[in-house]
Simulated assay, not measured.
Amino acid sequence: MPQKVRIALDAMGGDVGAAVVVPGAAISLNRYPDTEFVLVGNRALIEEQLAKHPALKAASRIIHTEVAVSMEDKPSQALRRGRKTSSMWLAIDAVKKGEADVAVSAGNTGALMAMARFHLHMLEGIDRPAIAGLWPTVRGDSVVLDLGATIGGDARHLVALAIMGSAMARVLLNIERPTVGLLNIGTEEIKGHEEIREAGERLRAMAALNYVGFVEGDGIGGGAADVVVTEGFSGNIALKAAEGTARQISDFLRQAIAQSWLSKIGYLFAKSAFRSLRDKLDPKKANGGVLLGLRGVVVKSHGGTDAEGFAYAVDWGYEMVRYDLLTKINQMLNREGGGIVPDPSTPEAVS
């Protein structure tokens, strides 16, 4: 376990770049002082932001580049177009070289997935990365994956996701035998596509995994399982729908409170309850997902988040390293993943 957690940041990724990445890193550093940063991007823009955060400046070094991957680039374009000089590539490269323990980027999802896979390679038995995130539920948090790294997935891929997600839940949620469910259109065993039903049969036969069956969409937030597994297309839609619903509820509450003086007075009496609800619905606190299945740790942040939201993604990176998630996943794959056969197909990432 390293004395310091070294985090490489793609300072040109996302909708804003350094103006969000650097302040976000400063917030995370305040929570985890035993962190060192490698800031990758335009030196002038980074130093302009670092001047406002002396403690972060002292804990950072800069790798200069003026090349950035745009949010519109396709994965293949990002790999061809100056791939070895872009801020995203160099942040991942720092992990490959052992100069950082984790890379964090708010940049193009497809490009990040392609670069990470190309540069760091996959763990044995895993054919492609998956984005895993923590999902707030009425019973606590659940691990949900894949949230949009790749489209589609056969039974082998879904079983691999279940193994990696279970390892993540053991480490982050401190659950010895986390329950595992497959996202489906119904809980009956006859429901869903053939690959989902086949994955369910395989998981049911794996004694080391606490498989509980199919989970419907409303069961994610209800805490039906500690780990919810789905392929990236469905997972990304579920994530965006949940984030949109959270914002919609917040807007409805603000409108209702503003309708009358009586509502405003009632709000004053229930202020702490409303604050608690707002915190639970805040998408910033769930920002960030780890790319599982790689021979290195890479975290994806939402491109449009603010500094506070980016700080949560950086926190993710810190915790992945401190809890030694990569070793735990390797151990579970070696023990439970013998039946996983890599699939040669490589569907394009969801952006």
Rank of each mutant, 00 (worst) to 15 (best):
R6K: 01
I7Y: 00
M12E: 01
V22E: 00
P23L: 00
A25S: 06
I27Y: 04
S28C: 12
S28M: 01
L29D: 04
N30I: 00
R31A: 07
D34S: 13
T35A: 11
V38R: 01
L39A: 00
L45F: 11
E48C: 03
A51Q: 13
P54I: 09
A55G: 05
L56N: 09
L56P: 12
R61H: 11
I63G: 05
V67I: 15
M71R: 13
L79K: 13
G82M: 13
K84T: 05
M88E: 00
M88F: 05
I92S: 03
I92R: 02
D93R: 05
D93T: 00
K96E: 09
E99P: 05
A100W: 01
A114S: 06
H121G: 08
M122I: 04
E124L: 05
D127E: 05
I131T: 03
L134M: 10
P136V: 00
V138P: 00
D141W: 15
A155Y: 09
H157E: 11
H157L: 11
L158W: 03
V159Q: 07
A162L: 05
G165C: 03
M168L: 14
R170N: 04
V171M: 12
L172Y: 07
L172V: 09
L173P: 06
G181Q: 07
L182R: 00
N184E: 09
I185D: 07
E188Y: 00
E188C: 02
E188M: 01
E194L: 13
R202S: 01
L203R: 04
A205K: 14
A207H: 13
A208W: 05
N210L: 03
Y211L: 08
F214S: 15
F214G: 12
G217Y: 06
G223L: 10
V227A: 11
G232I: 05
G232M: 08
L239S: 13
K240Q: 12
R247N: 15
R247T: 08
Q248S: 15
I249V: 15
S250L: 15
Q255F: 06
Q259M: 12
S263R: 12
K264D: 06
I265L: 15
L268M: 11
A270K: 11
S272W: 04
S276K: 15
L277Q: 09
K280P: 01
A286V: 13
A286L: 11
N287V: 07
L292E: 04
L294S: 03
R295T: 04
G296D: 02
V297E: 12
V298P: 07
V298H: 07
T305Y: 06
G309M: 11
F310S: 10
A311V: 08
G317A: 10
Y318Q: 04
V321E: 09
V321I: 14
R322S: 13
L326E: 12
T327A: 15
Q331P: 10
Q331D: 12
R335N: 13
G337K: 15
G337W: 02
G338W: 02
G339Q: 12
P344V: 05
P344S: 12
S345F: 13
S345Q: 14
T346K: 15
